[in-house]
Amino acid sequence: MSTATAIPKKPARKTVFTPARLITAGVVLVVLILMFFNTKILTGKEATEAAPGTFSPASYAQEKFSSEIVPDITGRAADLVTVHKAIAADPAAAAKQYGVVSGSSPAVFSVKFTGTAGEPGANGQLPVQVKNMPPDVKVLVQMGPAINGTSIRDATGKVQFSQFKNQIDYQNVGAELNKQVKDQVLAKVDAASLPGKQVSVVGAFTLINPAAYIVTPVKVDVAP
């Protein structure tokens, strides 16, 4: 009868922390701490805007609004009464002469006018009585807080859908340009104090209802 021979177990190897190892571990720890404090934690929006090759509608609007959009609308703005008469006579000819048409969308007109401000409506639209405008045609200026439509985006003809990756980016650019109107134009105007005062407006409107021109402003001056 054979007898099994027991295999002796090897003693567990002990980790010896030599001064060199301790110094190395300390250096690694310091590097990790420095990396943590020098790392900026981004929000979802910041990460999207910072990612290489990622389009940011907000950055686009901030860059283009004052440098290109406002000067273009101001430069092409025609007298509102003149534009109205042209629209009343021949909308298609008026669009060709004074407006910008993108595809099958309604024409967008850049205009300027001076008139007497009325009481702002609950929707934030400020009625303005403009001399020589027919009494049955309303002139309304969007004063916020909500700015609707894409008149500012479409007024110059230089912001085209083909420039963007998809419809969402194109729509978001319109919304961000409207935000620039609020931040850079309307933030400087106290709408509640305007009734009865003379205001001069430069802006754009999309021809949807010929009985009401809803103007999104890029400039509002109030007479003292």
Rank of each mutant, 00 (worst) to 15 (best):
F164V: 15
L194T: 07
G144S: 09
I147F: 12
L177T: 04
A175P: 14
A175Y: 13
L186E: 07
V137T: 12
Y170K: 03
V111Y: 08
A93I: 11
S110Q: 02
A86K: 09
K165N: 13
Q184S: 12
P135K: 05
P135C: 04
G174N: 12
Q97P: 05
S110P: 15
Q160V: 15
E176C: 15
N148S: 14
G124A: 10
N178C: 11
A77W: 05
L140V: 06
V128G: 00
Q125R: 09
T114G: 01
R153S: 11
V199G: 08
N148C: 01
I208H: 05
T206M: 09
F113W: 12
K112P: 05
I69P: 00
L126K: 05
P127M: 07
P91E: 09
V201I: 09
D136W: 03
K182D: 04
K85T: 04
Q97T: 13
F109W: 03
Q125N: 15
S200D: 08
A212C: 04
F205H: 02
V202C: 02
I87E: 00
Q167C: 14
G75E: 14
D183Y: 04
S104D: 13
P91R: 04
A204K: 01
Q160S: 13
G115H: 09
D154P: 02
D190N: 12
S162K: 13
L126E: 07
Q97R: 15
V181R: 00
N132S: 12
N148V: 07
G196N: 10
D136V: 09
K197E: 09
N166F: 13
G157V: 14
L194N: 06
G115I: 06
V181T: 04
A78I: 13
K131N: 07
P120A: 12
V83S: 01
A191R: 14
Q180L: 05
R76S: 15
I73S: 06
H84F: 10
K138Q: 10
A212T: 07
K179D: 15
N172G: 12
S102F: 11
P71H: 12
K179F: 11
A191F: 01
K188H: 04
A93V: 07
T82Y: 00
S104P: 10
I214M: 01
P135T: 12
A117I: 01
D90M: 00
S105V: 13
T116M: 09
A187S: 13
N123F: 13
Q184N: 07
V189C: 09
K131I: 06
D72P: 01
Q180V: 00
I69W: 08
V173H: 11
G124V: 03
L140Y: 06
A175G: 12
G196W: 05
N172W: 14
E68A: 10
A89W: 13
K165F: 11
Q163A: 15
V185H: 06
P135Q: 14
Q142S: 09
P134S: 02
S162V: 15
N209V: 11
